[in-house]
Design a protein around this nucleic acid. Structure first.
Lengths: 145, 145
DNA sequence: TTGCCTGCAAAGCTTTTGCACCTGA
DNA sequence: TCAGGTGCAAAAGCTTTGCAGGCAA
């Protein structure tokens, strides 16, 4: 946490209660929160915090590489502390998320990237499907989609 | 094209000029079009086509697996004919897109998926960075981001 | 003929932005 | 002190939805 705040100062940005709280919420609260989740989580500690402030700060924190945005294809962005590289198994049934660190993307991209002289700065990869329990239910109810 | 229209009939859906034109636009026009691009592309052949219709039909075509939606992280969905599995190199400079078919995701997910008894139905993977020419410019202008 | 489909317009949501006041350093 | 930050409210986009009339089968 200290290091994250330092990165703010170093970048010439102020350390405000709002910024501190947003980082705390992401670090200690549940993972993959939306901007709205964060506002809700802060309703006790900072009742008047505005969505505008939350979004502005999340974008700032992303630009400083302190936070990462993830897209689970449901029309809104989720945010997490950018601590270790990983990807997600997203259950379309219950919404449960499993993180997994395996990522040999560099290896298997190597050739493609070289062929195109492409300078990679980042990538997304999310895997969708059904977790153990939803898989079961899914079969039983023959739910489409 | 014939096959795609058949899939509509078989599914109990009507073949309307709008649906035919949307499929044509995706098949023959430029790849990765947004809903808005499609409306614009049809301004000659179907001037009054409404965004509502386009979105409704794109969602229908996606549910029939005839079309796929892709997300390049810019807040809108792009659509392409769902013909062959591939991923994208997205240039953050000029917006150029390179498709590449390499995808050994199954292999390297194997273990993770098994460990969690996860039933995979799909995945996304987009690679972001700078293409040959933008990479160069990027260096010269020291553009942040 | 008839139920699905379309155009139009309004609404829904997430995210961004303008502005006056406030505050961290 | 004072430039950067916040709250509030409005706006901006993309996408969805309600409804009355239109059309494929």
């Amino acid at each position: 946490m200290k290091k994250m705040l330092e990165k703010l100062s170093t970048g010439g940005y102020r350390i405000t209660p709002q910024r501190r709280l947003i980082l705390e919420t992401l670090k200690e609260g549940k993972r993959h929160q939306t901007a709205d989740d964060i506002c809700a989580a802060l309703k006790d500690k900072q009742p008047n915090i505005s969505p505008g402030t939350v979004y502005r700060n999340l974008n700032l924190l992303i630009s400083l590489n302190l936070v990462a945005g993830v897209d689970f294809q449901d029309g809104r962005i989720r945010y997490e502390i950018n601590d270790s590289h990983h990807h997600h198994l997203v259950c379309l049934g219950c919404g449960d998320i499993v993180e997994f660190p395996e990522c040999n993307l560099k290896e298997f991209l190597g050739e493609t990237v070289e062929r195109h002289c492409f300078q990679v700065t980042g990538h997304t990869m999310e895997v969708f499907g059904y977790c153990r329990s939803c898989h079961k239910n899914n079969f039983e109810t023959a739910d489409e989609r």
